[in-house]
Amino acid sequence: MFEMHFHNKLVTVGNELSGKLVWYSPDLHLPRQASAFVYWYTEGRGDRDDQTIFTIPLQPEQLIRDQRVDFPFAVTIPHSGPITYNGSLIRVIWAVQAWVKLPRSSKRDHTQTWPFLVMPR
């Protein structure tokens, strides 16, 4: 469905994460809804927290069958972070997620996630 090309998979806080989300699908069923965003979420013993930092502009009608469509993006990671963190009870994970909802006949939602690293300055 999508491919992700990060320009930099490792980014320090206050700097820019950029890359390109590439759509390609020979599937007959084109998505009815689609979205992609840069976000962080937690994993571990605590209930999940998450926050979307940036939404990649993307409309379902732009997703055409058998044709590569590029969605370049650039987003500044906040100075305050959070940074990628692997603790004892908590993990903080940064990722880009793309999500498409396919027509009812195919009964499928499709989610792809690409993690990246956010480091302190």
Binding site: T42, G46, D47, Y85
Partner: peptide, 12 residues
Amino acid sequence: GPPSFDAKHNQV
């Protein structure tokens, strides 16, 4: 050490 982290259910 880790920086502070201040979410609703998870904090450093």
